[in-house]
Amino acid sequence: MNIFRLTGDLSHLLAILILLWKIWKTRSCSGISGRSQILFATVYTARYLDLFTNFVSVYNSVMKIIFIAAAFATLYLIYVKFKATYDRNHDTFRIEFLLAPCALLALILNHEFTILEVLWTFSIYLESVAILPQLFLVSKTGEAETITSHYLFALGSYRALYLLNWIYRYYFEGFFDLIAIVAGIVQTVLYCDFFYLYITRVIKGRALKLPA
């Protein structure tokens, strides 16, 4: 565990909690893509099946359980409890166009052709693009609430910090996982446009509105 990895995990945890808190506090999931949340729930479920087969540490297991529980709690809030506030008319990104290629790629490019390994690989590929429906929703409405942009910033930072963690681990531990690194780069690049807007607008106290 190095500082990049730890801050990455905390940033990830913070993102998930900000989202739950925002929906709960405002009693509304407006501006949040339920489709991205379906993809994230799929990602955690596919990746953390090793909770049943492999024990790494208490930290590892607790974080995994929190991520899975929070993902399904978020889905419950969006699709059941605060269903009336869900922005379904704007949340129209076709997730099958992400799910199918990721599944296919996981079957072809993986470390080992076993069920758990292919599911892990699928989750890595899917996570890298899972935010697209959310970014699509923001671009469609042309704006995001400030709390939603904090959520996106924390979520995007997490994989960027993991990239630093992988650079660190490569130099100091000789560790590298090409699948995770390439997917992590793709994931981080997808946020770049958003990071720019966040830094130039939200931090200066303005609302995140896309340039017309």
């Binding site: 990830h12 470390h111 000789g174």
Partner: peptide, 10 residues
């Protein structure tokens, strides 16, 4: 020894 099998990352 394949180090990628030890999945300590989240």
């Amino acid at each position: 020894e394949d180090q990628t099998r030890v999945k300590d990352e989240l």
